[in-house]
Amino acid sequence: MMETTTEVRPAAASAAGPTLRFRPDIEGLRAIAVLAVVLCHAGVPGLGGGFIGVDVFFVISGFLITALMMRELAATGGLSLLRFYGRRARRILPTSTLVLVTVVAAGHHWLGFLRGDEIAADGRWAALFAANVNFAAQGVDYLDSQSAPSPLQHFWSLAVEEQFYLAWPALVVLLIWLGLRHTTPAVLGLVVAGSLAWSIWLAGTTWSYFSPATRAWELGAGCLLALVAERLDRIPAGISTALAGAGLGGIVVAALSFDDSTPIPGYAAVLPVLATVLVLAGRGDAVLGVAPLRWIGQISFPLYLWHWPALIIAEQAYGPLSGRTRLALVLLSVALAIVTHLLVETPFRRSPRLQRSHLLTVTMAVLLIAAPLAIYRG
């Protein structure tokens, strides 16, 4: 799902040179997160809590994004919002727009024009990174079975993340401008504490599930860890490995023990969030850094976006699906994710022309956001 480069380095070392440290364990952790979500949605027995993969993604994203921000601050003494949002646009928009347009077209083809127009309306909100607001306003219960869930319902998490990233870098820039950069950890800590308290207060409600105010602490937990990243290398190897092992165990326990009655986010989300922090603070390369998991981690974002509409559209078009059909649809999603990663995601993200030109990036962003809006006929 939501991701950026897995190359990070301690802030204290950033002044020493351009060397970056690759984190294969983070790629593997992404794979665990996306597999938990996909297998949960595919109805695999015993994985009713696989939805916590989204919580894991939030922490990873906060950690990596903030690590990149701190690296830029260390290198330049400032933070360019234009450069930051340009990276996000190149990373997120090509893949998300492709999925949105394809799903709307598939909805019209397999489910009819009335249902297709409803999906297109959801696509408009998703294109504007406001899917969570749309589904919360509809009173959607994400963890409860519904007669006709939207094939674009999973875009809520992408909306929450992008809403967070509208505020977090801007807050850092504001603190720098006010000469209060040193207060960043304290300010972020207050935000995390307030968001966690609010999520516990509202636990079990629709707005609690979809609101950026009740999810900010999950991303913020990863951000806080990134602010002390230079200290992580001081942890002895044995303790570091133990932390990663304990964290991975916590994620597995949450995925196996949670179900649709678990009040999420609320206090229950502390387990997968804290467990993910432990994995990121430690080193899980021996388990998480293996090639198959790293490969799945690389395609985790398009896989997350493709799997849900494939399952939902098929079920709404043909009725209850057999286990074999669900497996075939998951494999189809993997194939779509591979093609998207190779032909769309990577070329746009690594395009030298887009990286050099803010104007081209802005033009690309406007066109890609407008495309799903153009096919909405309501």
Results as ranks from 00 to 15, higher is better:
Thr97Gly: 05
Gly323Met: 14
Gly62His: 03
Gly86Ala: 08
Leu180Ala: 14
Leu329Ile: 04
Pro94Gly: 04
Leu373Phe: 08
Thr76Gly: 09
Thr95Cys: 14
Arg231Tyr: 13
Ala310Asp: 05
Tyr85Leu: 06
Leu332Ile: 10
Gly284Met: 04
Met364Glu: 00
Leu303Ala: 07
Arg88Gly: 02
Pro292Glu: 09
Met69Gly: 04
Ala131Thr: 02
Gly48Tyr: 02
Ala370Tyr: 04
Ala130Cys: 13
Leu158His: 05
Pro45Val: 08
Thr183Ile: 11
Pro320Ile: 08
Ile299Arg: 00
Ile52Lys: 04
Ser261Gln: 13
Ser322Cys: 11
Ala216Gln: 09
Ala255Lys: 02
Trp177Ile: 11
Leu354Pro: 00
His154Tyr: 12
Leu128Asp: 02
Gly194Ala: 09
Val160Asn: 00
Ala221Leu: 13
Gln146Cys: 08
Leu225Ile: 05
Leu305Thr: 02
Val277Trp: 00
Pro263Ile: 05
Phe113Cys: 13
Leu143Ser: 05
Thr205Gln: 06
Arg326Ser: 10
Ala255Gly: 11
Ala126Met: 03
Arg234Tyr: 11
Thr276Ala: 07
Leu68Ile: 12
Ala12Val: 11
Val279Gln: 00
Cys223Val: 15
Arg231Thr: 03
Val133Ala: 13
Ile235Ala: 07
Tyr209Gly: 02
Leu81Met: 08
Ala254Leu: 00
Trp156Arg: 00
Leu68Glu: 07
Leu81Ser: 09
Gly48His: 06
Leu81Asp: 08
Val160Asp: 01
Phe301Arg: 02
Asp117Lys: 06
Met70Asp: 08
Val38Asn: 03
Thr346Ile: 12
Leu321Gln: 14
Gly77Asp: 05
Val339Ala: 15
Val290Ile: 14
Ala13Gly: 15
Thr346Leu: 14
Gly249Thr: 07
Gln298Pro: 03
Thr5Gln: 12
Ile239Met: 13
Gly282Pro: 03
Ala337Ser: 15
Arg181Glu: 11
Thr340Asp: 02
Thr5Pro: 09
Ile296Cys: 06
Glu345Cys: 04
Met1Lys: 10
Leu202Lys: 09
Ala130Trp: 04
Leu274Trp: 12
Ile312Gln: 12
Arg83Asn: 11
Ala167Ser: 12
Gln138Met: 13
Leu174Ser: 13
Phe135Gln: 10
Ala213Gln: 11
Glu230Gly: 13
Glu315Thr: 15
Leu354Val: 03
